[in-house]
Design a protein around this nucleic acid. Structure first.
Length: 640
RNA sequence: GCCCACAUAGCUCAGGGGUAGAGCACUUCCUUGGUAAGGAAGAGGCCCCCGGUUCAAAUCCGGGUGUGGGCUCCA
């Protein structure tokens, strides 16, 4: 006689043990239809599983986050069933729900083709039409291992084998397909609906280990209804329009070519934007007490051996051997160079904290498959800095860095920033006692700053723990940009020290920090965040002056001269073309402000202003227009 | 690095064992037009590279390089 308590606090008494489906039906037919699973005392259960005792029960509907995840998980099972029907000698492995969809990893000799995807998708729809009952079964672990081994599913058997002996496992059966799964699942395949689509195939290593066999992964997306599916597919198209590689071309910012994989060829407009980013950062960090330096790009291999980089990353460094047989490395980082500058001057604790910054161009031989537009390159520019300080100064310096980073992100319109604390990795340099100290210092700085953060275990740098600053862009994607690392190892390895108040030699603490991270990557993120519609203060060409007829050419030249004299980046378009033609071309090129000038404007020294994205025009005196734009630049305002 | 796909004009792409195609961009001419493409003509190609098959390869096959989607990696 279970008493069921619903989330709103109401209670229902049932005469006998009752299933989630029955509870939902007793509340309403609409709910019964939308229900996909239940949560019983916080634990997700199948809708058909019988509840014997008093419990708190929550009905999960297909529209809820949990319900959607379940649908996606079911879609993965239906995918696996379809593949097993079509190609019985394919082995199944794992198939989880992921953000926006699902995937399933299969082991087979022949990779899937694009045509196979269509075939599989059609079969999945048949399985949905068949409306097969999905049943939960509890097996003894060893029986399950023997069963899967018996039907040739070695991977499945291996997974179950890694579950502690003596534990029972749950299997789910739908039609002739049976799979190990924690559940819960839908009561039948028909409930999945057809708002799913297979999207692409790729390779994926078994258990995520590159030493293992490469499996064939099929990705798909799944939603609660067709409308949601269409909305998602539309969002993908919109994201593609924002692609910085496409916009970099239409905005004439940069290009890549085969002779320099992973390295940017900057065009005048792209370099202008790059310089704007540097100018801004320079101003902000000078104000925060940093001094800018520059260190060599090519240094002897011995320095990298001393720093520990050679051992950890030697395979990923560009090297160069001179005719006399000396081996040099092209710098992958700036820190060893900064330590050399520290060693040349600083001897006293009175000089600390000592903050050195560099816009250093680094080269890393990234795996070819990792390259991706400007987001992952082999030649990039870091806004790198190192704060040399005493152990007592770690907290205050770390807080200052956090505030600097968050403030700068706000200036770029990134308000949603997450912080992750990454501690010691398995492969590292230095004593554990030193790591204890560095991690504790970073955590205490975080606690003192009052900022929220999450824990990212084992993801620290080889020389110290770090904070990762992750910003979320306009369409909800996360990008890790900034970093703050506490390093108690490198100064000692490279022989840096200072004389403390006590007259003794001490090792300085080194805080590594970057805010943009890579300027190339940050620019890519900025372009995609703004969909190319850069805020006025960053736009390489801020104003285009378009003439209606050639009678206005002289006035247009005057306007350009005036704009440039006031520090605005402006270009004229005096071509013998119709105004619509010019407007379209510069709109496509994402120029934020267009001034149209014709006879009327020439006569009263005005401009007809059209902002990117707007179809309206505003006529204003040239003087007022310039002032308004200067104000906007000063405020670093974003249009969106 | 690994799996799959792709590589044709500046760009976006069609084609396909035997003179290389379109749209846009570009050049010239006409047009001086008030807010997202005015008209005409012209020029533009080692069909990514190296091999092989073939009477004949841009096309088929193999290898390489690059790019894309993932996996692994990211000091």
């Amino acid at each position: 006689m279970p008493k069921i308590t619903l989330p709103d606090g109401s209670e229902r008494q049932y005469d006998a043990a009752v299933s989630g489906a029955e509870i939902a039906a007793s509340i309403g037919s609409g709910l019964a239809k939308a229900a996909v699973a239940v949560r019983v005392d916080g634990e997700p259960w199948d809708l058909t599983r019988v509840i014997e005792n008093d419990a708190r029960v929550e009905i999960l509907t297909r529209d809820s986050d949990d319900g959607l995840e379940l649908l996606r998980h079911d879609a993965a099972h239906v995918l696996a069933e379809a593949v097993k029907e079509l190609w019985p000698d394919t082995q199944v492995t794992i198939g989880p729900a992921i953000e926006n969809g699902f995937y399933y990893d299969f082991s087979r000799k022949e990779p899937f083709t694009e045509t196979d995807l269509e075939t599989i998708e059609a079969r999945m729809q048949e399985i949905v039409d068949r409306d097969e009952v999905i049943e939960r079964e509890i097996w003894k672990r060893d029986d399950a291992v023997a069963f899967f081994r018996g039907i040739g599913e070695e991977y499945k058997a291996e997974i179950i084998d890694s579950i502690p002996a003596g534990e029972d496992v749950s299997l789910y059966r739908q039609g002739d397909f049976i799979d190990l799964c924690r559940g819960p699942h839908l009561p039948s395949t028909g409930k999945l609906g057809k708002a799913f689509k297979l999207t692409h195939v790729s390779g994926a290593y078994w258990r995520g280990d590159s030493n293992n066999e490469m499996l064939q992964r099929v990705y798909g997306t799944a939603w609660s209804n067709d409308k949601q599916l269409r909305k998602y597919l539309h969002m993908l198209e919109e994201a593609e329009k924002r692609d910085h590689r496409r916009l970099g071309r239409v905005m004439d910012l940069f290009h890549f070519q085969e002779e320099a994989p992973g390295a940017v060829f900057w065009h005048p407009k792209g370099w202008s934007l790059f310089q704007s980013l540097i100018a801004f950062m320079r101003q902000e960090q000078n104000a925060a007490g940093y001094q800018e330096i520059n260190t060599p790009e090519v240094m002897s291999r011995s320095l990298w051996e001393a720093s520990g980089h050679w051992e950890s990353f030697g395979d990923n460094m560009f090297t160069t051997e001179t005719v006399d047989g000396r081996m040099y490395a092209i710098k992958p980082m700036n820190c060893p160079g900064h330590v050399q500058v520290f060693k040349q001057g600083i001897t006293s604790y009175r000089d600390l904290p000592y903050r050195l910054a560099e816009f250093g161009k680094c080269h890393r031989y990234e795996p070819s498959g990792a390259l991706h537009g400007m987001m992952r390159v082999r030649a990039f520019t870091q806004d790198d800095a190192h704060v040399f300080c005493t152990p007592e100064q770690i907290t205050s310096e770390s807080i200052a860095v956090c505030n600097l980073i968050l403030g700068i992100y706000r200036d770029f319109g990134f308000e949603d920033v997450r912080i992750k604390f990454a501690d010691r990795p398995e492969v590292r340099v230095g004593e554990d006692a030193v790591w204890d100290q560095a991690e504790a210092a970073l955590v205490s700085a975080l606690d003192a700053s009052g900022l929220e953060y999450t824990h990212n275990p084992g993801e620290g740098a080889f020389y110290g723990p770090k904070l990762e600053f992750v910003l979320r862009d306009a369409i909800g994607r996360d990008w890790q940009c900034g970093t703050l690392q506490v390093d108690l190892n490198m100064p000692g390895r490279l022989g840096a020290s200072y004389i403390g108040e006590d007259g003794e030699k001490h090792l300085p603490v080194m805080l590594h920090r970057a805010i943009f991270g890579s300027l190339e990557r940050f620019m890519g993120i900025l372009i995609e965040h703004h969909a190319g519609n850069l805020p006025l203060w960053l736009a390489p060409v801020q104003i285009k002056v378009l003439t209606i007829t050639s009678d206005a050419d002289d006035y247009a030249r005057e306007v350009i001269a005036e704009l440039r004299a006031r520090g605005l980046r402006a270009e004229a378009d005096l071509r013998n073309e119709k105004i619509s033609y010019k407007v379209r071309e510069h709109s496509v090129a994402k120029i934020p402000v267009q001034f149209a000038v014709g006879q009327r404007e020439t006569e009263n020294r005005s401009v007809a202003i059209r902002r990117l994205g707007s179809k309206k025009q505003q006529v204003m005196s040239l003087a007022d227009a310039i002032q308004a734009l200067l104000d906007e630049v000063e405020k670093r305002a974003s249009q969106d």
